[in-house]
């Protein structure tokens, strides 16, 4: 199968000496052409650094990356023609109209005037922005503005589209709307999409394949189904009333029949079980017998959250918080 992106052994360190921060320690993956590929990970995991390298914004200390058949280190100019990039932060010009934004973008890529007009009109219609096209964009809603960011990135018909956290900050309705646009884009434009997200749900919904990145490394790769299928049965999550009883609770749960892998994360205990409904009564009785009071118990089908927990050894949300603190 042809690959639109091939990254191998990407290493990147920011700063020098004792203050150096290793952002990537050997990230590699391959993205099949014409698919949506998810890059999932908590804040500070290395997703942005990887995106910066693949979009020619930054250069790796070592490792190679090929995008649309072009080496990002040797042919950055040609790569820039072949890619479209939607940064995490808004990138439209708020003082211009939607159409003016698209026109300038077309000129930057050297498109002929007639093509700029027809392509611009086509994108505005497709993203439902035609009615607002000649209004100044700072008066648009957040969801419309974000769609314009995506339309700008598609203006010159790129072969690879990078979407960096495209739905962060959108309300649920606008997010659903954006999801629909993203899932249609590989068909409509024949592009390959690299979708960076820290919403597990978003990756699950949109990505054909995905990598999970944690602490500068790829910790898992596959289709969402494969990754979830790699986990046995259901997930039981037990929240303890007293975090100090973690060890006692762990021993009690481990002795229950049908319980597999157990991971502890503060006051929470995550257990893999063959069949949630059948195991739960025994599990509760064991905890009761051991004198461990509970705050809550949930049983769930495996989610990417569980995949993340399994591979990164900590829950996604605690990793996300830790990453945000490091970044801040």
């Amino acid at each position: 199968m042809q690959h639109a992106i091939e990254a191998e052994g990407l290493v990147k360190t920011y700063g020098k000496g004792p203050k150096a921060v290793r952002a990537l320690s050997g990230v590699g993956f391959a993205v099949p052409s014409g698919t949506v590929f998810g890059m999932l990970g908590p804040n500070g995991a290395g997703k942005s650094t990887t995106t910066k390298i693949l979009t020619t914004l930054s250069t790796p200390d070592s490792g190679t990356a090929v995008v649309a058949g072009l080496d990002v280190a040797k042919q950055p100019g040609a790569v820039r023609h072949a890619i479209g990039y939607v940064p995490q932060k808004p990138c439209f010009d708020p003082t211009a109209t939607g159409r003016e934004n698209l026109t300038l973008q077309g000129h930057v890529y050297g498109m002929p005037g007639s093509d700029i007009r027809s392509r611009g009109t086509h994108l505005l219609e497709r993203f439902g922005l035609a009615d607002a096209a000649d209004r100044i964009t700072k008066t648009w809603s957040g969801g419309m503005q974000r769609k314009l960011d995506v339309a700008l990135a598609l203006m010159h018909r790129p072969r690879v589209l990078f979407l960096d956290e495209p739905t962060t900050g959108l309300d649920p309705e606008a997010r659903a709307d954006m999801w629909a646009e993203i899932s249609g884009v590989t068909q409509a434009d024949g592009v390959t999409v690299l979708l960076t997200t820290h919403y597990l749900e978003e990756a699950d919904q949109l990505a054909d394949r995905l990598v999970i990145i944690d602490r500068g490394q790829v910790v898992a790769e596959g289709t969402p189904e494969e990754l979830k299928g790699g986990l046995d049965g259901d997930a039981v999550q037990v929240e303890l009333a007293d975090p100090g009883q973690q060890e006692a609770a762990r021993r009690a749960v481990a002795a229950v029949r049908g319980v597999g892998e157990i991971t502890a994360d503060g006051a929470r205990l995550h257990a893999r079980v063959g069949n949630g409904a059948a195991t739960l009564p025994g599990l509760l009785a064991a905890l009761d017998g051991a004198g461990v009071p509970l705050a809550s118990v949930t049983v769930a089908r495996p989610s990417l959250d569980d995949v993340y927990l399994r591979h990164a050894g900590r829950s996604f949300h605690s990793a996300d918080r830790a990453g945000t603190e490091v970044a801040a």
Binding site: T55, T56, L57, R80, I83, Y85, V86, P87, Q88, K89, P90, C91, D93, Q105, V108, Y109, D149, L152, A153, F162
Partner: peptide, 9 residues
């Protein structure tokens, strides 16, 4: 994100 978009163009 304007600067980042410009530099990837």
């Amino acid at each position: 994100g304007v600067m980042d978009r410009n530099l990837t163009s």
